[in-house]
């Protein structure tokens, strides 16, 4: 038997919002320009309610964002960890640049001081699963574990993978989503990339979702935001033309619709990241009467965390489609022609 998969917790952690309420306030404010603030360090211990210890002192920024996002998501889902079997709770987190910031710090010491004076405390953060490992460690989550580094679609890829695992009964609950922080190397990456010219406003942060089986959510009386009903993951291939990308988007939407058991007519709208304009999507999919939402103007682009963050933004956005429930397709497009489509039935 296949499990139905629902979203029961939202954990946004970014320089302009810590938690669902502050994100909702910002999203639904008329003057959203205030959110574009300078990136700054946040007081991890006071937000997380943890005392400083050897582990938290050694965490890098990406791990801190990830742990904070996970804490907020678990709280929002009202999951009582002491009542759960920790083997049934997994962690799958996506990030485009992953541990690049810590790796860069480590390399800086290598260059300036030589290989005998490098810091092992920094080296432990130079694996890409350091952030997801810290979530598992801090909250005692011993189940399925993975980290996805699939560029811009990382968090959507992580959510699609998590969906499949819960659907097939390999986990009951998965903390899924994305996290991103930037360093000079990542800015150089954008500087040399075509995407820079899309005038992206980059944003750091974590967008963590609690995904769980419907049966598990119902037993514990959880508040359900949405049900994920179908996904697709694919690529435009070697041909980098706009036509090839358009064909791949059409194919991705079609595959996800097929898995969802609905048709294009049943789809009420789209969530896009800023690699695609609504007008382009209308032309690609051949429709002109479905709304398309993009939150880049309000929140900036979270790069590898953008898919999960966009889904969360839509759930909290008051000016979304009024019909309840309604079906919405997240179309996340990567730097390299990767495409992840996630179709959700929104119930709030």
């Amino acid at each position: 038997m296949e499990n139905r998969v629902v979203i029961t917790g939202l954990g946004p952690a970014a320089p302009f919002c810590i938690g669902k309420d502050s994100l909702s306030k910002m999203l639904n404010s008329q003057d959203f320009t205030k959110c574009k603030r300078e990136l700054k360090e946040f007081d991890f211990s006071s937000f997380c309610g943890t005392r400083e210890n050897a582990n938290t002192r050694g965490m890098d920024r990406i791990s801190k964002y990830a742990v904070l996002g996970a804490k907020l998501a678990l709280e929002d889902a009202s999951i009582l960890l002491s009542a759960e079997d920790s083997e049934n709770i997994g962690v799958i987190i996506g990030s485009a640049f992953g541990c690049t910031e810590s790796s860069s710090k480590f390399i800086e010491t290598l260059i300036k001081k030589g290989p005998r004076l490098v810091n092992p405390l920094i080296y432990r953060n130079t694996v890409s699963n350091a952030a997801s490992g810290q979530i598992a460690l801090v909250f005692g989550l011993k189940g399925f574990h993975s980290t996805i580094n699939s560029g811009n679609v990382s968090s959507a890829d992580a959510a699609a993978y998590s969906f499949e695992l819960i659907k097939r009964g390999k986990a009951e609950v998965i903390l899924s989503g994305g996290v991103e922080t930037f360093s000079p190397a990542s800015y150089l990456w954008f500087d040399f990339s075509d995407y820079f010219f899309r005038k992206m406003s980059l944003t750091e942060g974590a967008g963590i979702l609690v995904l769980e089986s419907l049966a598990h959510a119902e037993i514990r009386g959880a508040n359900i935001y949405a049900e994920i009903i179908g996904t697709s993951i694919l690529n435009a291939g070697a041909n980098k033309s706009v036509d090839a990308l358009a064909a791949a988007i059409r194919r991705g939407v079609f595959i996800a619709l097929k898995e969802s058991g609905i048709t294009m007519d049943d789809l009420d709208g789209f969530i896009l990241n800023n690699t695609l304009e609504p007008v382009e999507l209308r032309s690609i999919l051949g429709y002109d009467n479905k709304p398309a939402y993009s939150f880049v103007e309000r929140c900036g682009n979270f790069v590898g965390a953008s898919g999960a963050f966009d889904l969360m933004n839509y759930i909290l956005f008051e000016a979304k489609i009024e019909k309840k429930p309604h079906n919405i397709a997240l179309i996340n497009i990567g730097f390299d022609g990767s495409i992840v489509v996630i179709i959700s039935k929104i119930v709030v």
């Binding site: 993975s146 890829d157 070697a238």
Partner: peptide, 15 residues
Amino acid sequence: KQQYDLRGPISTVSI
């Protein structure tokens, strides 16, 4: 992917 024109799922994992 570029070398073999793969158009199905492509992903990178790092644990």
